[in-house]
Amino acid sequence: MNTTSEIPHRAGYVAVVGRPNVGKSTLVNALVGAKVSIVSPRPQTTRHRLLGIATFQDGQILLVDTPGLHSSGKRAMNRYMNRAARGALMEVQAAVLVIEAGQWREEDGLAYQALAEAGVPCILVINKTDRIKDKGELLPFIAKVTEGRDFIAVHPVAARKQDGLRPLVASMLAALPESPPLYGEDEITDRSERFLAGELVREQLMLRLGEEVPYSTTVEIERFEEDGNLLRIGAVIWVEREGQKPIVIGKGGERLKEIGAGARTAMEKLFGRKVFLELWCRVREGWSDDEAALKRFGYAE
């Protein structure tokens, strides 16, 4: 905590909201300084609300990473993700609307409308500015997207390169109440290692599988045991159709081995210890449109 009396310590919750694939989780990880949210180039990689704890000298920002708000998709999973994103707005002091530099789509408007209806003070973050070759295009774009919309601050950033984050942090802290830290200085998330292990396996599925299959998969951790400095983890990759199982496993089990190796490496880096990981692939027909299955696999408010 800051010991100078001139700068009060602030702490509170900030929802990170936006359409799929604008870089919300990348931004959360950059602010926290550790990988608490999985990232892939695919939309809807984030399926859960997740808290990232960013601690600074004069404040603590509790970042609520949310699934991307989207208008398409009628399945139970899509409804769950939209509920999770909108529900996050009920318990925060401020919000960040993340959009992609040079783009304003219908779903960006949907996300802004959800924030306006919730009455949450909102900061606009224009991400991926490193992809804009002519930076002179940014000012007209900012003028266009802010016209008729109420933002307490606007920040162009490149979260992947950690550019523009300091001014953003200052704006976020200014929107929060004076408060002592709400979590310990060394805490980075409210989620368990067991939950994070499942997410890291799912990240590998998003990165390594073809177009549609990743959206039909989920991960269930069946075993999570500490053996001295070793973690023994057993995980089931669930798919929706029998024909998807050989795609996940690959010829001679090679793809499943690659998924396991990538996930294990990420776990060891995050958890700071050795990991023994076993993976299985099983079929549960239509799980993503089955409310009971969603609850079993941890998709619950």
Rank of each mutant, 00 (worst) to 15 (best):
C281Y: 03
R166Y: 11
A114T: 05
R296P: 05
I247R: 02
V28I: 14
M172C: 13
G228A: 07
G260H: 08
E107G: 10
D190P: 07
V201R: 08
M172L: 15
E203M: 10
S216Y: 06
H9T: 14
A15V: 03
R19N: 05
E187V: 15
G148I: 08
W238H: 12
Y13L: 11
T146F: 05
L139Q: 11
E187N: 08
S192L: 02
V125Q: 02
L89Q: 14
S25L: 03
G250K: 10
E225K: 15
V154A: 00
I126F: 08
R296C: 04
I237D: 02
R255Y: 02
N2F: 14
E301S: 11
F195K: 05
P20Q: 06
G184M: 07
P156G: 04
R105M: 11
E268Q: 12
A266K: 09
E240N: 12
E203D: 01
G243E: 15
V201D: 04
L279R: 09
R47L: 01
R10D: 08
R105D: 06
E240D: 04
G148H: 03
A94S: 15
T66W: 05
P121L: 01
E107K: 14
A85S: 13
A158P: 00
L69H: 10
E178S: 12
T218A: 15
R255A: 11
R232W: 07
V14F: 02
E222T: 09
T217P: 02
P156W: 03
T218Y: 03
E222G: 15
C281F: 03
R166N: 13
Q103N: 08
P246W: 00
R282C: 13
Q60H: 07
L62T: 12
V157E: 09
R149N: 13
I61S: 07
A11Y: 07
C122P: 07
